[in-house]
Design a protein around this nucleic acid. Structure first.
Length: 270
DNA sequence: CAGAGCTCCTGAATGC
DNA sequence: TGCATTCAGGAGCTCT
């Protein structure tokens, strides 16, 4: 499932094939994704891609008139393929470029989205998003302040997009394990020092993953079609009943906010 | 307002 | 072997 590092990797991977080139047309085979695909996309023709960017896990393709906004959901991927590449099952959207290539979006579970706006600043989905996790705005003091009135589980808190974007389930589990904080710890019991440690850990985990090109999980393909990889083994995620890599105690799994969670009850303090 | 639960969807895993 | 059931999961939305 694409997390922030995967989206960043995808953005960087597709950029050389899009930026500076002209979109000839956009083919929508399946408009029923998480939301109906913007009808505007089918009308786009002969527009240059001026830039690519990312906000949270949204991919933003800047074109001469407006912005195409994509989200990979949990099973989506984008690849660059030749114009004559045969269409596979779940290939829902093609952005056809004038360089012989096209950006092909495939998404078995259709949790993704492809939208259009002419005003990024007022794009409703971006209105309430918290800071980017790798920005300076996301720091210990910020997290401490935000946590003061929060009685939710720490794991739910750091995955809340209003607090900070892009901390998905896997990286939330990994970050909490690394800094020794229990996922069920109540958010407002964090000390400033713990907030600083947690922020530093999240930044480190995400930037390491970005540097390595994303996590290998069954659904993700990099833009050129090769599987992604995550050289650094996951330390707790998916390791139920296996020995904790720090102390050997069996890793526990629990459900927090409808999300599968993993922790070492011995190393991670409430 | 905060927090809990619901929802979209399909492939993989599990159950008999 | 095969069919039926269960479950995961991002994140906005609805309800309490």
């Amino acid at each position: 499932m694409p997390e922030l590092p995967e989206v960043e990797t995808a953005k960087n991977g597709i950029e050389p094939y899009l930026k500076g080139f002209i979109i000839e047309r956009i083919v929508v085979r399946q408009p029923k994704l998480r939301w109906q695909v913007s009808e505007k996309l089918s009308e786009i023709s002969q527009q240059k891609v001026t830039a690519l960017s990312r906000r949270a896990k949204y991919l933003i393709i800047h074109i001469e008139q407006g912005y195409i906004i994509g989200h990979l959901g949990m099973s989506g991927s984008v690849r660059i393929v030749p114009h004559d590449s045969p269409v596979d099952k779940h290939d829902h959207v093609d952005i056809v470029m004038n360089n012989g290539k096209l950006l092909r979006y495939n998404d078995p579970r259709r949790f993704g989205a492809w939208l259009w706006t002419d005003n990024l600043a007022q794009f409703p989905l971006f209105a309430k998003l918290g800071p980017e996790p790798l920005s300076d705005e996301f720091n210990g003091a910020y997290l401490f302040e935000k946590s003061r009135k929060k009685t939710t589980a720490l794991k739910t808190f750091i995955m809340d997009n209003n607090i900070a974007v892009g901390v998905g389930n896997i990286y939330a589990n990994e970050s909490l394990f690394l800094c020794g904080l229990h996922p069920l710890k109540i958010a407002n019991t964090l000390t400033l020092t713990q907030c600083e440690l947690l922020v530093d850990t999240i930044k480190q985990v995400l930037s390491t993953a970005i540097a390595q090109g994303g996590t290998t999980l069954k659904d993700f393909l990099q833009p050129d079609g090769r599987p992604g990889y995550f050289a650094q083994e996951l330390l707790v995620y998916g390791r139920k009943a296996q020995p904790c890599l720090k102390c050997g105690y069996p890793i526990e799994s629990l459900v927090i906010g409808q999300r599968n969670s993993f922790c070492c009850p011995h190393c991670q303090i409430r």
